[in-house]
Amino acid sequence: MKTRRLTELAMLTAVALIIFVIELQIPNPFPIPGVKLGLANIITVYAVYHYRPGEVMMVVFVRVFLGALFGGVMSTLIYSLAGSIFCLAGMIPLSRVIEEKYIWLSSILGAVLHNIGQITAAVLVTQTLGVFAYLPFLLVSGCLAGAFTGICAQLILKRFSGKAYH
């Protein structure tokens, strides 16, 4: 891998991690695990459209792992990991189909997939199907949060488009 590429990926990971840690400081008004804005995924959706699948996975998994480490909540790592795997498994193929100008729509689908992955992990951990009762709340929050992060990503792309970034 070229040094330039590696540096870009490291920078993206660092930016995502900073966003993640800052978001941890915002108190969550919803007492439901998994309901959050997920602002760090602005970087995820951006990376999905601009980097190769392997590179996106590196950015996301390193951020998820270090995020759990920095946040001191290692017990939630399995849920974020399951969510990220579901999200990437859906978004990487979808990014080939969905044009970049609809990035906010593909971000919604990614967020919903992330939530489905999380809740599947929670059902497996607790071995209780009743936990699926949270899926509807997560669908609503996934749609809203996904739209928000997607629109943020779109704004960033607009800023980049005028400049010779690459």
């Binding site: 189909v97 969905i98 044009e99 609809y102 729509l105 593909s106 919604i108 689908l109 919903v112 899926l135 509807p136 709340f137 997560l138 669908l139 609503v140 996934g142 749609c143």
Partner: peptide, 21 residues
């Protein structure tokens, strides 16, 4: 056409979430 489908899928997801909630 693609846009229409995407909107439809996202709309159905949101609606399913609201009704389910």
């Amino acid at each position: 056409n693609q846009k229409k489908w995407l909107f439809l899928i996202c709309g159905v997801l949101l609606l399913a979430g609201v009704i389910g909630s």
